[in-house]
Amino acid sequence: MKKFNIVVLAKQVPDTRNVGKDAMKADGTVNRGALPAIFNPEDLHALEQALRIKDKYPDAIVTIMTMGPARAAEIIREGLYRGADRGYLLTDRKFAGSDTLATSYVLALGIKQLFPVDIVIAGRQAIDGDTAQVGPQVADKLNLPQVTYAEEVLSMEKGKIIVKRRLERGVETVEAPMPVVLTVHSSAPACRSRNARLLMKYKHAKSVSELQEMSEDYIQLQKDRPYLLIEEWGASNISADTENLGLSGSPTKVRKIENVVFKAKESKVLSSDDEDINGLIKELIENHTIG
């Protein structure tokens, strides 16, 4: 049976879907600290696609790869609880301030370390930026074809993958040779939940930086169970060229950030009384808005 090597790209993001009042500071900037950090939703859909392939081909290896600060090891653990086999955290001060181009450069180099890879699966986009750029840019950097907006992997035979895509007003089914990069749309099936057995197995999985804070005994425990180690790679591990990293590798710059304030209009307040509604309709007809 074919031993598919699958890499899932995932990102830890602030939960911008629930930006409450306390998430904005008095000066109008976003208080990132007040937002919980979560597994980017569409990346969970991507993970599910990878796990479905593994259901069908149990020899497949599913690797989660993420670029982020040390705390992003959390989402690798989350992936392990749900069925991923291992994870790599790409982390380095030099990566800070990366835009999508610099990010895809790092991810592509990380993926290259795991070559030969059959499928790279990413979420279509991350909710903190909604750019949908990283997947295609990784594909370009690896010189691979891409299938974006993927909803379902239909088959994988003889080196070719057949994928259904979800477009604005329809679906498209495409066949691509592997290796290939897929980006998964939120219309794809949701990710399975944590598996109780895997949760027990991996709850002590720790990254190298996390281990530094642990006791000697704990570290010894880890050594006996190497699968608990979440590997961390910095710029030198992936032979990255510093020029292409972080701010210097990012052609886009943020010039200005503004809080969105809508200017309150002078609105006329009306009641549901017949008189008010009749008057409103008359006004609208008179100023040719309707009629």
Partner: peptide, 9 residues
Amino acid sequence: FGGNILATI
């Protein structure tokens, strides 16, 4: 950020 800020890039 979910529409809460406007960025000029």
